[in-house]
Design a protein around this nucleic acid. Structure first.
Length: 504
RNA sequence: GGCCCUAUCGUCUAUCGGCUAGGACACCAGGUUCUCAUCCUGGUAAGAGGGGUUCGACUCCCCUUAGGGCUACCA
């Protein structure tokens, strides 16, 4: 096989969309699997929709996620730079190239000048719509004489250049790597605008010219492009370019099965990261939307390297896939559980630092060193790790770790039908036990656990429930020995003391 | 409206003519357990409908239906 060269070619109109992330990912996986080249090209031909900073944000996000490109537009030392032998890689910098090819098409009569006003086009469309016909340009300007065209050009009349689709061209058939054979009749294809009146090319011209000049071997893009592919094929023929292979991947869908959109939830990768989803989980999840290793495999969790190894365009699904948050949550939970504690701390701290309760806690701990604070947070994390869905959940469900005082009804201290006397005895016994623990005992949560469990004996509920409530003030929480281990001897005894005061 | 694409549990999917239709998420039940979470076990739940082809169709073909995409001097 000749060299594999694929591209991800976003328009800088906003943040990276999760659908685009998947398109980029599939291109990346395909390239890496076959030792090919993954190119990032910027399709900024629509001057009206450009969003300042969007190029930078797209590049940074791909970089953050770990989908690295080999060629194209990069950020170096904070500024945009381009690398590769087929640049420039931003279409707005390639205008002369597009003009040159447009002129070639004019010369070979595969394209023609069109001076029709937007109002005439609108009227035409309306008329066709009324008669239930497909809206298509009527080739009106194809009938213009050379003299008239020259004259109107000389007068600087605005014009566009349109593809001259031969209605007698046979059916256009292409072999899609995902869908198989796709057939479209030439008569259904509109005389697409190739050059706009502002001198910029449309997507259709730019993509064909660039894919050719950049030696793109496989065009892997979203299903929404499938109906423009015949136009692109016609352009390849007119320009005598060899055809790349096409693969149209299924759309990502809203729960109501429409194309994934902002109206029905978050669509930006940035949104998910800032909500506390791990990039690894997001990549894994999105990879499985429309693809799976097949062959009876039941594997759900994949590293990027495993995806590279196992990815295959032929096992990409044809039907669209609903973006199911519930499964993403599960996957994120799995990834969080597997994180090393130090890694969890590093990734989780930014989220924790934003919380009011944490800021207040930090304010109250001015006698602690940074190391001691870090050690405390790591203990919290060790207990919470298995109970987190998102990084932003840290501390949320267990406020007693960071709270200065915990409020609860004293009746909550009673285990089942136990009397106040029994509860008091349990708390006093716990007080005694915890007081007897040495600093060395407090080092390991397993030691604290063993000592308390031994003390509880076969009456676990009678002993552990009051202790747990005294330490947490909560009906639901992690085990009392875990909480005690996090809080430490002094704070634990303090909370036991105030629980006993409540009862007296 | 026209053109194109698609169709297995609620969701993501396996199956490439032999199926008692498998897995995962979600949900439900049970177990472990001081509560919660984790963990373990089990369960509910699917081939849109109709025609063909075939000894045999979820798998191949056709029609219908449904959903989606496109239908711009946007990508």
């Amino acid at each position: 096989m000749s060299e594999i060269r694929v591209r991800f070619a976003p328009s800088p109109t906003g943040q990276l969309h999760v659908g685009s992330l998947r398109t980029a990912l599939y291109n990346y996986l395909f390239a890496k699997k076959y030792d090919g080249t993954f190119i990032l090209r910027i399709e900024d031909t629509d001057q009206n929709r450009l969003v300042p900073g969007a190029v930078e944000s797209l590049i940074r996000m791909l970089d953050t996620i770990g989908i690295h490109h080999d060629e194209g537009v990069f950020i170096e030392n904070g500024v945009l730079a381009q690398k590769g032998g087929y640049g420039p890689y931003a279409q707005s910098e390639r205008l002369p190239t597009y003009r040159e090819y447009a002129q070639k098409l004019i010369a070979s009569e595969k394209a023609y000048y069109c001076f029709c006003s937007v109002s005439r086009l609108a009227a035409l469309r309306e008329e066709q719509n009324k008669n239930k016909l497909a809206p298509k340009y009527d080739k009106y300007c194809l009938g213009l004489s050379h003299e008239e065209i020259e004259e109107r050009l000389a007068e600087n009349e605005p014009y566009v250049i349109r593809l001259n689709v031969d209605e007698n061209h046979g059916d256009i058939v292409f072999d899609d790597l995902v869908r198989g054979e796709v057939t479209i009749h030439a008569r259904d294809i509109d005389d697409q605008v190739l050059m706009k009146s502002d001198g910029f090319p449309t997507y259709h011209l730019a993509v064909v010219v660039d894919d050719y000049l950049m030696h793109i071997s496989h065009v892997i893009r979203g299903e929404e492009w499938i109906s423009s592919t015949p136009k692109h094929i016609l352009l390849h023929e007119a320009l005598e370019f060899p055809l790349p292979k096409f693969a149209h991947i299924p759309l990502l869908l809203n729960p109501d099965k429409s194309k994934l959109s902002k109206r029905q939830g978050d669509v930006a990768v940035e949104d998910y990261l800032s909500k506390g989803y791990l990039k690894e989980a997001l990549v894994n999840f999105v990879a499985l939307l429309g693809w799976n290793p097949g062959a009876g495999s039941t594997q759900e969790i994949f590293t990027l390297d495993e995806l590279v190894e196992k990815f295959d365009l032929s096992s990409v699904h044809k039907a669209g896939a609903v973006f199911d948050l519930k499964k993403l949550d599960w996957m994120n939970t799995e990834y969080i559980k597997k994180l090393a504690l130090d890694d969890l701390y590093e990734r989780g701290l930014p989220f924790l630092s934003e919380k009011e309760f944490f800021k207040e806690w930090v304010g109250r701990q001015n006698m602690l060193s940074e190391e001691e604070k870090m050690a405390f947070v790591k203990r919290v994390l060790k207990i919470e790790q298995d109970r987190l869905t998102k990084l932003s959940d840290i501390g949320e469900n267990n406020p007693f770790f960071f709270a200065s005082d915990i409020a609860y009804e004293k009746t909550l201290l009673n285990w089942k039908q136990n009397t106040v006397i029994q509860t008091k005895e349990a708390l006093e016994s716990a007080q005694e036990t915890l007081s007897s623990l040495t600093d060395a005992d407090w080092e390991y949560k397993e030691v604290v656990e063993k000592i308390l469990m031994d003390k509880a004996g076969d009456k676990k509920g009678d002993f552990l429930w009051p202790l747990r409530v005294a330490l947490t003030g909560a009906q639901h929480s992690p085990s009392p020995f875990d909480v005690a281990w996090v809080l430490g001897k002094e704070e634990s005894l303090e909370r036991l003391k105030s629980a006993l005061q409540k009862l007296s």
